[in-house]
Design a protein around this nucleic acid. Sequence first.
DNA 1: TGAGGCGGCGATGTATACAAAATCGGCCAG
DNA 2: CTGGCCGATTTTGTATACATCGCCGCCTCA
Lengths: 229, 229
Amino acid sequence: MRASDRAYRALREEIVGWELLPGSVLGEVEQSTRLGVSRTPIREALSRLVADGLAEPQAGRGLVVSGISIENITELFEARQALEQRTAALAAERRDPAVFSRLQQELREASTLLDDRHAYYDLVARIDAATDGASRSPYLVAALRGLRTHLVRIRRLAQDDRSRLAAAAGEHLLIVDAIVAGDRELAAHATHVHLHLSLQNTLHAAKAGRFADRLAASQPIEVPMKGSP
Amino acid sequence: MRASDRAYRALREEIVGWELLPGSVLGEVEQSTRLGVSRTPIREALSRLVADGLAEPQAGRGLVVSGISIENITELFEARQALEQRTAALAAERRDPAVFSRLQQELREASTLLDDRHAYYDLVARIDAATDGASRSPYLVAALRGLRTHLVRIRRLAQDDRSRLAAAAGEHLLIVDAIVAGDRELAAHATHVHLHLSLQNTLHAAKAGRFADRLAASQPIEVPMKGSP
DNA sequence: TGAGGCGGCGATGTATACAAAATCGGCCAG
DNA sequence: CTGGCCGATTTTGTATACATCGCCGCCTCA
């Protein structure tokens, strides 16, 4: 594997996993010595992180790990609403029923999964992947992919408890049911409901201060509004 | 300005302006000699182009300029529907009426602009920028920005005729009216209508073969579905 | 004592040399 | 004649040396 890929994955994992906290300076030389590769692949890795929105240039301090604020979380879910609702609706129209029937089965047995957070999240990831594929809307999916990075980062903070996980499983099941049934409207609305509840839960956890320390380290990030050209 | 920026802008402009046709190989050495900078900034520029979706790695031929197919155009508008509808709705809720009243005025006088395509597109760009800002939804806007690159590229092909431009001005006016009035529903639906008609016009031009030669050069591009990690 | 400028220092940006990988062409064998 | 393998060549990937830019601290002068 290429060194730049390894550097990218390592840094990305550290940022998403809150080992590199928001505000940490990402100096090229420092990272290159730490990760044992030269500056060239590090530069490429850092470019990709900036493109992902996981790092951002800061006035005088060079490149720093970007922060997340309560406001950011709300804004993120706003975008997610728009994209996932549409994706779910399209999937309901265009899906292969067999694929989603299988996922439906798995979800019905999901209560057995809830003790294994990893297995459950993996199932959700497969549902997302199936929905993405079924939507046949690559540009929507590409936009969503950019968002999911940040969502994972938030999820690692929020640490859904078991009861939330159980509720989420039910919500997901309704979405999959709708897709299997080819019910576009229901798929969209069920997705809306799911995201609404998910956001509520996340915000509640945030405001309860369960991870106030980490948000405190986060500067409200400035999502770049200016065009690339 | 940085050499990598110049290289990026130059290449981007050439691709969007159809000077570098789809399928053209973007060799690092070739471009570095042509643009008069070393390979390092060229590599950075090419990375950004790939991130933009304007270039893509091809099996054995290295990096090539990505193509656009009729299918791509439809998919692109599908994503645009989801994003712009939501942005317009949010803008209608959160806008500063004064800003959009001014744009409303300008649009009403737009019939005088229609002979100057550049001035008209500039006005549309300012409307987009105002809507983006008013939506207060940076992640949605960021996703839209990625799409707009491709839209410009398509627009340079389709070359709206004067009558389409006049119709579009009317559609834009309705959207701005809705935003000024704070009518969320109307803003969303008017946007939907506008994008629908815009797509119809583009597809009609494409199928009429007005730029079949350029689409022919385009391989239906594969928007990367696989995750970055 | 404060403000401004000057110099050094550390950072990023660029060029280039070197290494590795992958493809294409040709050649040989079946 | 066809298929596969091997090697030459081109291309990308990496390391490193060099240039340039901006910040910070100190010193000097008003």
